[in-house]
Design a protein around this nucleic acid. Sequence first.
DNA 1: TTCTAAGCGAGACGGTACGTCCCGTCTTGAC
DNA 2: GTCAAGACGGGACGTACCGTCTCGCTTAGAA
Lengths: 200, 200, 200, 200
Amino acid sequence: MNMMNAMSTKDVGAATKRPRGRPRDTALRNRILATAAELAAGEGVEIGFDRIAQAAGASRTTLYRWWRSPHELFLDALLESARTPPDPADSPVLERIRAQLEAAAVVLVDRPTAAPLRVLAAGALTSAPDADSFRTHWLAPRRGLARELIRLGIDEGVIVDEDPELLIDLLFAPLYHRAFFTGAPIDDDLIDALLARVRR
Amino acid sequence: MNMMNAMSTKDVGAATKRPRGRPRDTALRNRILATAAELAAGEGVEIGFDRIAQAAGASRTTLYRWWRSPHELFLDALLESARTPPDPADSPVLERIRAQLEAAAVVLVDRPTAAPLRVLAAGALTSAPDADSFRTHWLAPRRGLARELIRLGIDEGVIVDEDPELLIDLLFAPLYHRAFFTGAPIDDDLIDALLARVRR
Amino acid sequence: MNMMNAMSTKDVGAATKRPRGRPRDTALRNRILATAAELAAGEGVEIGFDRIAQAAGASRTTLYRWWRSPHELFLDALLESARTPPDPADSPVLERIRAQLEAAAVVLVDRPTAAPLRVLAAGALTSAPDADSFRTHWLAPRRGLARELIRLGIDEGVIVDEDPELLIDLLFAPLYHRAFFTGAPIDDDLIDALLARVRR
Amino acid sequence: MNMMNAMSTKDVGAATKRPRGRPRDTALRNRILATAAELAAGEGVEIGFDRIAQAAGASRTTLYRWWRSPHELFLDALLESARTPPDPADSPVLERIRAQLEAAAVVLVDRPTAAPLRVLAAGALTSAPDADSFRTHWLAPRRGLARELIRLGIDEGVIVDEDPELLIDLLFAPLYHRAFFTGAPIDDDLIDALLARVRR
DNA sequence: TTCTAAGCGAGACGGTACGTCCCGTCTTGAC
DNA sequence: GTCAAGACGGGACGTACCGTCTCGCTTAGAA
């Protein structure tokens, strides 16, 4: 669903003939995604297509054409903003993990990503399909990367030899918990303390 | 709000004169709370007063009389079911903390509490007032108790001397994260591993 | 229904033993009737037992005990206020008819009667049972008296010999029409003009 | 409010470009108006948007889109059905007045108009704004026409030289009174008798 | 005095309608 | 083929009354 939309005009090769009708307004699409994130940041109220459309100066019909639900739209908005973090492949493993943690902290705190993420998490808490989608498109890729790094660290002997899933939770769960529920600050001290729990 | 409702007949002394009008139907109240929890367990759809009332065989009006929002109702239902965990005051501190963790695990997993808790958490993620309420009525008391135990453990030298807030997050955040998002199992091994991170 | 309530304490003879329980609060009854009329004069909104009870400082239960519907209550209020007009039996017939017309004008215009009357008329327009009740308890007695006088006048030769029902309508309908719908003034000139149409 | 709705497609000239969105469903509009009149004829109960919508197979929302209150809707329904009576402009004045009276009689008695008219009159009796609306949109135009004819008749010397307002009431009030309250028949004899009162 | 019947206020409860808001679908015109 | 405008059915929301009910308190005559 997302892949289809992400790329729309430019394709591989030169052949790509423009389809027949009026071309899609990409500026509009970006405006919609940004507006949705902005709206979600405004907290509180339930956010539906209606409100987003109006705030983005678009027509409700257009939203329905491209996304089947606000959930999908927010997922698009989130993935758009949360560009994959730079992984310094040459650095020591622990540094690479720290980079992951810091990237997660940014995503959890910064405006354009924090808000859609909260909306998606809320959905995941009360709707089974949304929970699946949240796990598949958001959690799984990030946990996958972390798992690789942790396995690497275990092999190198710099990380304690325990269940990687447990270690991932130890590292990331406190970040989510603070961002989502307690509101406590997420800073370097915290990340240091977390890393200390997995270091051998 | 909750305290008012929790106690109904017996009060201090013999004084408590019944108020003038028709007395409140406590059986109905309990049925409503139970039904709400049951409904929330049915997952998925948004739950409103309408649905709860119908399922409980009550009138929507009655719900509005006693709770101002589904959030309040679910908070009541949760606090009703999640009776304060037995704290074995004579045991070693680490055992008492373990008891807290196990109690939390039960609440997070068992039917009558897990469902309302998820609903409340979802609300906290998208509504500032609900977030406040969730923190005040749910998180704060439990973190408070944990904080006391941790301080005790630090004094006794059985727990590492670090910021208690950090230790609380280390212990509890993974439980919430698994219950709320990943769906991974919450068992004794997990609790052992968590405790190991705070033990001196 | 009304007769039962109108007289409550005094009865025929001295025998009338007071019934067993607490006696009815007549001051309250009067206050309710007056308040209802006053409320109806406040125009506009639909008037129900709830509003009347609150305005009269009575309990809704009490209203339900004595009247089955606002319609009955307003009928009581109207009949209470619209004491039977003085009929100068010794005067010429036309003078007696004029007295009836003037009495009707007063009832249609003066506060404590006009408002309940409008409410009852409105009910009569949209509810068959209320229409019956309105005809039986309000219109019929007054038309009956007018009919007698008109027959007398016809016999005496001072009134045109036409269908009394027609003559009654000719005399009274314009009063009702002005009071109820056009809002045009009802004065002696009008009554003179009306009487002129039936005088021989 | 009515004029806007009455005309829909054809306007002056050929210009009238259709507005942008989906066009209004005029068949639905007519069905709603007819159903409302039909329902009102079923007498009795209070009629709200809910009932009308359900009976007409429309959505309540749609009714609220086009009318602000049942009063407005009934006014529309009445004015739609009560097409302006044919005025035989070449006939003698008294004949033209008789035509008006007969038209009024039809409106007051015939199904599709009598019922909405009663509802409107009931509203006028208990609500000041509804009374205004009733006078402005229903009574005023009809009385205006009658006033012209009467003035003409006075000039021609065929009608008594009295206040036209009085004469209008004399002619029409009995019709309304019988239709609304007494239920007595409205026939040619009645109209003859009424006309006799204004003829010179 | 005590008992008993009735009046009265307070307030819970189920129910219905209201007016509003949003959703998802549709039908049209313009680009 | 994309987009805006907007009608339409449907459903939930929060409120306001309605009519019934269960209470406790009061007022009185009767036992």
